[in-house]
Design a protein around this nucleic acid. Structure first.
Lengths: 121, 121
DNA sequence: GAAAATCCAGACAAAATTAATAGGGAATCT
DNA sequence: AGATTCCCTATTAATTTTGTCTGGATTTTC
């Protein structure tokens, strides 16, 4: 019963129990994901959350940026030398590229290959 | 008068003044680099620090690991799903590869290209 | 022996990060 | 109306990180 299938709807509570995450904690994360355009929600009885797009079109980078904020190796007002700054910008670019290629579907496939616990979100 | 030339010796104090870093702070860093086998030091009058190897054979990753500890995207006792863990391990591997290819000489060349402040260490 | 310089262990505070908790408000279904 | 479920803001607590400072001890040169 994969919650990562596009149409599947589920409640915060049910997911919180399965993953053993505090309900109020999970609530905040899902809220962020909805505002970020990754999930859709419906209130009231029978409501819940569901993915807006198929997992093949949701990237890890997208989720990470929403939840953790922008991926930046360099601090905002960085005092590093221009050469180091340039180098780290390059690395950061490579990380971004990777994070943009890696989709939620890719990650879920890796769960399968490892044959372990089922994973959702 | 580049301090990154292999033979050049300099004192903590002179570098601290130039870079406007607290002397005692810089001292700790240089100490780490020496223990890590990147720098050599000589005590007493006329002593100081110098690079052991040419900058072409010192990598940014080496320095970073010494100063900041191991580069790890995943926390030590990570509770992530196996699929996510696997994915992040892959990314971490790519970062490591990049950091191992990028040498101090490469960084210094970028300083030149940007024509800005001279940079040492 | 005096001066110059590194060596070393530890204490400290401010800031940032992370995880969690709290308490109600608003919409929707039956 | 009442139950269900998401919505929203704020606060707390614990931990880690970062930068800095203290106070010497040791080695080397002159």
């Amino acid at each position: 019963m994969s919650r990562s299938a596009t149409g599947t709807i589920f409640s915060i509570q049910s997911l919180a129990e399965e993953e053993r995450i505090p309900l109020k904690f999970l609530e905040q994360i899902l809220l962020i994901l909805r505002k970020g355009g990754i999930m859709h929600s419906r209130r009231g009885a029978g409501g819940g959350y569901q993915l807006v797009r198929p997992a093949t079109r949701i990237t890890v980078g997208e989720i990470l940026e929403l939840v953790d904020g922008p991926i930046e190796l360099l601090p905002d007002g960085n005092s590093l030398s221009p050469g180091l700054t340039s180098a780290f910008q390059e690395l950061q670019g490579e990380m971004q590229a990777w994070l943009t290629k890696m989709t939620l579907a890719d990650v879920m496939q890796r769960e399968q290959l490892r044959g372990a616990v089922s994973f959702d979100i």
